[in-house]
Design a protein around this nucleic acid. Structure first.
Length: 687
DNA sequence: CAGTGAGCGAGCTTCCGCTTGACTT
């Protein structure tokens, strides 16, 4: 290659993608990565009045990179803008043109591809187009709107919550809704009243001499009650139990139904995060970090780095044609043609999906987990194996299951007729399940259906035991990370690239705590959610958020002017915030602390406080009373006071009085010292 | 390991989305 040959410039978003695309295009192209956005609003800029000539005041955020692009463009005949084919990607292209002044230079071409295959890239380069300013404007509107909502909302919180500014409390289009559903759920749980109910089951045995089989059946109908039996007290349960213990059992009816179970679609960001949480208990951010490693690839002996999976921030379930055929080939050779469903394409459910990328899949089906095991860490291998299997399973046939239901008449000695029912299911054809069976959500009811003996109408059965168990209805569960992300995706709120960080934000603000990996709002989180819901209700309403998304779409389609849209939005919004500032009461600081179950000597509750060293118990009357009790190292403060705390607490209380703050401080310090020496003696005992 | 926190109010922070690197605490 001689040096005077012009090398055209291609710009994509990610360095890994640049490497792959560069390989497809060959030596006549220089491929650079923008690494995401290259310009943004200044940090201190907030929306005020927007007039019709409004121009957002952007600043460059990647100066050296822009300089590099400028330089490369000088040596190029054509510049290909190959950023992602969605709203943000289109905007990145435009920002690049503006920031690196590419407009007055060369031949500018916008090219888009939805999958990184040689064919797709060649096809894209054969059909370049211009930058779509409608799409760019939709992104500008999105950006300005988020800034305005975020900053004005945050400012409102600072004015109403003591210490809010110092703690950096924040509000935003996405984080505030995430917080609200966690708070709403908590209120549901608080208001929940458990209802008693009884579950009655009978273990029955077949009568045939050579094959005695025991199975269990549960009560289905009670004489005099329509539908599902309602048994809500012990005496009713015992009466039925007594009847069933003295009853004759006969099979009344056998039904058999064939059901098909379809494989799940290939992974998107949100389903990958959910499934990795269920299967491996990975956090969303851990999943993303591991996926990023797989995407950037591994270096096999004597070869180029090779990306193992396609892009991990995606909302699409689409698979490239070559992936479909590779999968089909693999299935047929490994399992036979019966197991191949033929190319199966999945529709994306989420209404806000932009489908800039493919589903998350292995770049090559040939890279079986077995083959590349040696190059991966154990967590990488686990995630990769799951992606590999689910991709292939998505192209396999349905599993066919035989569901059997048996109704059994139980005639008690007093003449009452009950029906008990046994269900069983047998897999007739395993289909995709041969390769991949998904770990279920622990919230999901697992059906305890077993294999039933073959039964015929009229068969007599022998009763073994009858059991009546008292149960109580359970409140709805708190959200896990995965549940929360699924909710946001269903509502079209947030994007694949931000879900993991949103979770981080509401935790960092200490709006939520984790209890057994589920989110529980803190008093501050509740106060913030309540304030916003009451006074800036628009941003807390999922319907309203959806309508904004619709408006952004109409800007993208060229049906609406983006500046008009912003004016229409911010007019009422600014008013809403200013009346909120007038009307809302300042939150009393007592509402921001979490009470413990214990009281201080002066009668005030001890509260759970957060310091830079961790949590501790302090008197609610601080600073008048300075009692402070540490948790033991490694233990977190919860609503309860542990035995060991109590000892410290009692010692402190004996000597503490609110009237004597110095004494109280000394006592608290003394208690801590004692705790330390006790712990040390324990340590000595051990060794 | 120890020992923590509030409000005051001068001077800062706060949003969502796109993407990775590293000019040391």
């Amino acid at each position: 290659m001689t040096t005077d040959v012009k090398r055209d410039l291609v710009i994509v978003e990610s360095p890994s993608k640049a490497r792959t695309v560069g390989r497809f295009l060959g030596k006549n192209y220089v491929v650079l990565a923008s690494m995401g956005h290259v310009r943004d609003l200044p940090k201190d800029w907030d929306v005020e009045d927007i007039d019709i000539n409004f121009q957002a005041p952007y600043i460059n955020t990647k100066k050296t990179l822009i300089a590099e692009i400028k330089k490369a463009a000088k040596h190029a005949e054509s510049v290909y803008l190959a950023t992602d084919p969605d709203r943000e990607g289109e905007a990145i292209s435009w920002h690049l043109v503006e920031a690196a002044k590419l407009g007055n230079s060369k031949d500018l071409k916008r090219v888009v591809f939805h999958e990184i295959t040689d064919a797709a890239v060649q096809e894209a380069f054969a059909h370049p187009r211009q930058i779509d300013m409608h799409l760019v404007n939709a992104q500008q509107a999105r950006r300005v709107l988020d800034r305005g909502v975020g900053y004005k909302g945050s400012n409102f919180l600072w004015s109403k919550i003591p210490g809010g500014r110092r703690k950096g409390l924040s509000a935003g289009r996405v984080q505030s809704i995430a917080l609200k559903i966690i708070v709403d759920r908590e209120r549901e749980i608080e208001a929940f009243k458990p209802q008693e109910y009884w579950v009655i089951t009978a273990d029955l045995q077949t009568q045939s001499a050579q094959n005695k089989h025991i199975f269990s059946a549960s009560l289905k109908t009670v004489p005099g009650q329509k539908g599902k039996p309602i048994i809500n007290n012990e005496s009713a349960a015992m009466e039925i139990k007594g009847d069933l213990e003295r009853a004759v059992y006969k099979v009344a009816n056998v039904t058999r139904r064939e059901a098909r179970q379809r494989a799940r679609p290939p992974f998107t960001t949100s389903t990958l995060q959910q499934q990795a949480a269920r299967s491996f208990r990975f956090s969303a951010s851990r999943t993303m970090r591991i996926a990023q490693d797989l995407y950037e690839g591994i270096v096999k002996q004597n070869s180029e780095p090779e990306g193992l999976i396609t892009y991990m921030r995606t909302d699409s379930t689409n698979l490239a044609e070559n992936a479909l055929s590779e999968a089909e080939k693999h299935i047929i050779t490994q399992y036979g043609a019966d197991y191949s469903s033929g190319p199966r394409r999945y529709k994306t459910k989420s209404k806000s999906a932009q489908e800039a990328h493919e589903a998350i899949r292995p770049t090559s089906i040939d890279n079986t987990p077995e083959k590349i095991k040696q190059y991966l860490s154990s967590e990488q291998l686990r995630l990769y194996t799951m992606i590999w299997k689910r991709t292939i399973a998505s192209q396999m046939t349905d599993a066919i299951v035989d569901n059997t239901g048996v109704d059994i008449k139980a005639i008690a000695t007093n003449g009452k007729e009950y029906i008990v029912r046994a269900t069983g299911s047998v897999i007739k054809f395993d289909g995709y399940r041969k390769l991949y069976i998904e770990t279920q959500d622990e919230d999901a009811q697992n059906d305890d259906s077993e294999q039933l003996p073959s039964l015929l109408e009229g068969d007599s059965l022998e009763k073994q035991t009858v059991e009546a168990n008292q149960k109580f209805t359970q409140p709805p569960p708190r959200f896990t990370e995965a549940n929360l992300i699924r909710f946001l995706e269903e509502q079209g709120i947030g994007r694949p690239s931000t879900w993991a960080t949103i979770v981080g934000t509401i935790e960092k603000r200490q709006y939520v705590d984790r209890e057994k990996s589920r989110f529980k709002p803190t008093p501050t989180g509740m106060a913030v959610s309540d304030l916003l819901t009451k006074h800036i209700s628009s941003i807390m309403d999922t319907g309203f958020t959806a309508s904004i998304e619709a408006k952004l779409d109409s800007i993208a389609d060229g049906d609406q002017n983006w500046i008009n849209m912003l004016q229409e939005f911010f007019g009422p919004f600014v008013k809403e915030v200013s009346t909120a500032k007038e009307k809302a009461d300042r939150v009393p600081s007592q509402r921001l602390v979490q009470l413990s179950d214990e009281k201080c000597v002066g009668g005030d509750y001890l509260v759970i406080r957060q310091s830079r060293y961790g949590k501790f118990l302090g008197c609610g009357k601080f600073p008048e009373c300075r009692v402070a009790i540490s948790t033991r190292p490694g233990e977190r403060a919860s609503g309860e006071v542990t035995e060991n705390w109590k000892v410290d607490w009692e010692t402190a209380m004996e000597n503490c009085a609110i009237a004597h703050p110095e004494a109280a401080a000394a006592v608290a310090a003394e208690a801590n010292k004692k705790r330390g020496s006790r712990k040390n003696s324990k340590k000595r005992d051990k060794t």
